[in-house]
Design a binder for these strands. Structure first.
Length: 301
RNA sequence: GCGCAGGUGGCGGAGUGGUCAAUCGCAUCAGACUGUAAAUCUGACGCCUUCGGGCUACGCAGGUUCGAAUCCUGCCCUGCGCA
């Protein structure tokens, strides 16, 4: 059996301690970090996303941070492309890639079996279909691609529009899902703190962010960088709720309370995604990761 | 003390004689995820269930009625106004 290049993934819900664990392991085992975070790719979104500072990086190179303007949507396909490039470059230098982050979709796009059809988003089509109702869109899809229609979430306009977009652009049905075999040997480590601990960490971290200028950051994005309220809302969590507060849609207490709840819900959605991965090695204590990594890098294969 | 308004599920809030275990929103729980993924979307949500249904419920206690969250009486409680 050929020796596959090794990659280590550190996943887990927000505030579970992925970042510092990743850096510690990268330092110990000669690694570099590839961030798998759909919001940390944007420049100027630092406090709200909990982006590592230069200093916290402790000399470990970080990839896929600050690679896009928040004005435009950064997509999973772009992530995959740039991520693959980063992996290749890290391996070339004889280092170990550590994919660290909480965006399960990005991790799968990069390493898993989620195929991303090579069809770019079409703003015109999307805008046109946006006006239609989900049942209408579903009926259209059923007609053009019964196979895809049978498995899709018929209420989710975003998915329906994407499926129709693929069909419209290629003139043929959406390719069925096929298992992709990764070219790498991958160790999946999942951080799963007990719920009470996680909730507390989420709460404490939110208080720190508020103290460290998170509100000013969002205001700056809107006033200085020209990021629309709508866009900030779409970016979710801190950007969504702080912008609503800045718009006067809610007072500060409501903003804080609702944001905290939203973050907790988000953490659960992340877990729902990661739980599906049968290869995930779940740990509660970050210290347990070391043994897994050591064995993975030393042993077999 | 008098007058007025009101007491409904974890919360907010509909319902004013039957089709109400009770619209809806929030919270909570579970889940989905083919280029927006911190986004988007779905289901469950009184208790029990062999999933057919059964049981207990709309402040408390009585009453009217074939039938009440809905009508009547008394009581308790809350808010506002007058004393």
């Amino acid at each position: 059996m050929a020796t596959h290049s090794k990659i280590i993934v550190i996943a887990g819900p927000t505030a579970s301690g992925k970042t510092s664990l990743g850096i510690a392991l990268a330092r110990k085992y000669g690694g570099e970090i590839i961030s798998a975070d759909s919001r940390q790719v944007y420049r100027g979104m630092d406090i709200g996303t909990g982006k590592v500072t230069r200093r916290e990086q402790r000399g470990i190179p970080h990839h896929l941070l600050d690679v896009a303007s928040p004005k435009r949507t950064f997509t999973a396909a772009q992530y995959r492309k740039q991520g693959q490039r980063a992996i290749a470059s890290i391996l070339k230098h004889g280092k170990v890639p550590f994919v660290v982050g909480g965006t399960g979709f990005y991790i799968d796009a990069l390493l898993g079996d989620t195929p991303l059809p090579d069809i770019k988003p079409d703003a015109v089509l999307r805008k046109k279909w946006e006006r239609r109702s989900a049942p209408e869109l579903f009926a259209m899809l059923q007609k053009k691609d019964p196979r895809r229609a049978a498995e899709i979430d018929r209420h989710n306009k975003r998915r329906l529009i994407r499926a129709l977009e693929i069909i419209e652009t290629t003139g043929s049905p959406v390719a069925p899902r096929t298992a992709r075999t990764s070219a790498y040997a991958t160790l999946f480590i999942g951080l799963r703190p007990d719920p009470a601990t996680l909730h507390k960490k989420i709460h404490d971290r939110l208080m720190v962010r508020l103290r460290h200028g998170m509100i000013a950051e969002v205001r700056r994005l809107h006033e200085k960088k020209g990021i629309s309220w709508k866009r900030l809302d779409d970016l979710g969590l801190e950007y969504r709720f702080v912008s609503r507060y800045l718009r006067g849609l809610m007072d500060r207490n409501a903003m804080t309370a609702e944001l905290e709840r939203a973050i907790n819900r988000y953490a659960k959605r992340q877990m729902t995604w990661f739980k599906r991965n049968p290869d995930m090695h779940w740990i509660t204590d970050p210290a347990a990761a070391d043994r897994l990594v050591k064995r993975f890098l030393m042993d077999l294969d």
